[in-house]
Simulated scan of single mutants.
Amino acid sequence: MNNAVLICGSVAFDTITTFEGHFKDHILPDNIKSLSVSFFVPTMRKEFGGCAGNIAYNLRLLGGNPVPVATVGPDASDYLARMSSQGIDTRLVRVLEDMFTPQCHITTDLDGNQIAAFHPGAMTRSTENDVSGETAVWGIVAPDAKEGMFKHARAMHAAKIPFIFDLGQAMPLFDRQDLEDMHALADVWTFNDYEASVVEQRMEKSIEALADGLRAIVVTNGAEGATLYENGARRAIAPCKAVAVKDPTGCGDAHRGGLLYGLTLGWSLEDACKLGSIMGAIKIASQGPQNHNPSRAEMSAMLHAAYGLQLPV
């Protein structure tokens, strides 16, 4: 049985530094027009990230078969080697020799404020990746260059591969017509509660009305769980309590990984959402988007304790 899942989106590095002070003490409102500041950051860590990378990592943790579809530079050799060592199929990650891998540089102060700079690098040429002719049981179109997102969506739609559209950080790129076009292609939409409100405003339709033209819409609500809109009904998915709250980075991607794995098992969307909630709760208890590493038995035990479900043996 083909259990491959096409994970279309970004594979990126996150460089995270901490400024042991407060930005507000150095960024003066009266001098903002000639801003020139420098921050001493004694700690730094480099994380493996990107939506496709994070989703693939979580899906593989569960025993799924993710096939990331992304564009990177030659500086991603250690990332690709790591994926391969985890059993992730990297044949659709295209290496562009003249580009850098997408990178996000984030500096956080002691108040939790962040200054970030994102370099899209090879992501800008994601249309050069082609999934036509690929077979998969499910797919997802996660944040990437808009043209690449549409190319992959149209290819999966033409191949009759059901897929999830995850708007995420690509939200500023999509106007009303773009959203309407994607609505005609995707099977399931998923976004957080803020993104849902923006989509409602941009499309001048309620989430309930938008769900009528899809298999379902899943809206995540952080610590409050999620809401599933399916077959004209709205169902609340109770949250799974995290053992600790350390870092929300990548929690949405972890949820998508759990959701996709449940769907590949043939579970209902409600039960797949519950598995997504488990993965989000596991992720938030760990620093960085890909540093959690629970065993399958531990994930199954959490799923059973929270929802009475279990992963297949």
Rank of each mutant, 00 (worst) to 15 (best):
A233L: 10
I237L: 02
V219I: 15
A211H: 08
A233Y: 11
T227D: 03
E230P: 06
R235T: 12
I237R: 03
A226V: 03
P239M: 01
R235D: 08
G222E: 00
E230F: 14
A216R: 07
T220R: 14
A223G: 10
T220A: 11
N221Q: 15
L214E: 00
A233D: 12
R215G: 12
N231Q: 14
Y229R: 02
G213P: 04
A238P: 12
T227E: 07
R234L: 09
G222H: 06
A226L: 03
I237A: 01
R234V: 14
R215A: 13
A226P: 04
D212P: 03
A211N: 03
C240S: 12
E230W: 13
A211L: 06
A238D: 12
C240Q: 07
G222L: 08
C240E: 07
T220C: 09
G232Y: 06
V219S: 03
N221T: 06
A216Q: 02
A236S: 13
T220M: 13
A238S: 14
G213V: 05
L228K: 09
A236M: 11
T227Y: 03
L228H: 10
G232H: 02
A223F: 05
G222F: 08
R234G: 06
I217D: 02
A223E: 10
D212M: 14
A233W: 10
E230N: 12
E224R: 07
R215Q: 13
V219M: 02
N231D: 10
E224T: 01
L228S: 07
I237W: 00
